[in-house]
């Protein structure tokens, strides 16, 4: 009985420690683009919403006028999400391309001297640095945008305060610049 329990403890330990000793690591599937996932789910939500609207209209819960109005509003929302997704995906694409190049270079490296590999690593660092610089630039832009956003906007025609993402003035309807 004692032996059985000892064996059990050993087995448990081995099972838990196994991942540390495994040579080939699994890809870290963790680094997902959180923003993109979020947008994808937002997009699905707005699509489901549009489908539901359509159905509610067809089964007579919404009147035609309401339906048209709500539909166009939610379509706008969906389009905005699509746009955001595209820009987020572009960002990720650049990152992916860099990583691809890195992998390619590493792959070529197999069997060659370490000097070459150092060169490659340098190259990699450079490429990565570029991305970092890009990111810095992005951040700067974001900051500026943020600054601009924090300043209240006013309509030039009638002077009413408007929201930062409005395209038209909510009172007089003038196009905002």
């Amino acid at each position: 009985m004692t032996w059985f329990l000892f064996f059990l403890a050993l087995l448990t330990f081995a099972f838990i420690a196994y991942p540390f000793y495994r040579k080939r690591l699994r890809h870290a599937e963790y680094q997902e683009d959180g923003q993109l996932v979020e947008l994808l789910s937002k997009r699905d939500t707005s699509y489901s919403m549009l489908k539901e609207l359509e159905f509610d209209y067809k089964s007579g819960i919404l009147t035609e006028k309401d339906y048209k109005e709500l539909e166009s509003r939610y379509k706008r929302k969906a389009i905005n999400i699509l746009k955001d997704m595209d820009s987020a995906q572009d960002g990720q694409k650049i990152g992916d391309e860099i990583e691809e190049q890195v992998n390619k270079l590493r792959h070529n490296n197999v069997g060659k001297g370490s000097k070459v590999s150092d060169e490659i690593e340098e190259e990699v660092d450079r490429l990565r640095g570029e991305k970092a610089v890009n990111k810095q630039l992005d951040d700067q832009i974001e900051e500026q945008v943020q600054e601009l956003r924090e300043k209240p906007r006013y309509c030039r025609k009638c002077g009413v305060k408007v929201r930062e993402d409005d395209v038209f003035c909510s009172r007089c309807g003038a196009k905002l610049i």
Partner: peptide
């Protein structure tokens, strides 16, 4: 830490605890 190895070990221990409690 976003450490896949640790997480895998954690998952194994979760499964192990289920097996042990089942025992």
């Amino acid at each position: 830490k976003g450490n896949g190895v640790l997480l895998e070990s954690a998952r194994n221990s979760l499964i192990a605890s289920c097996v042990l409690i089942s025992l």
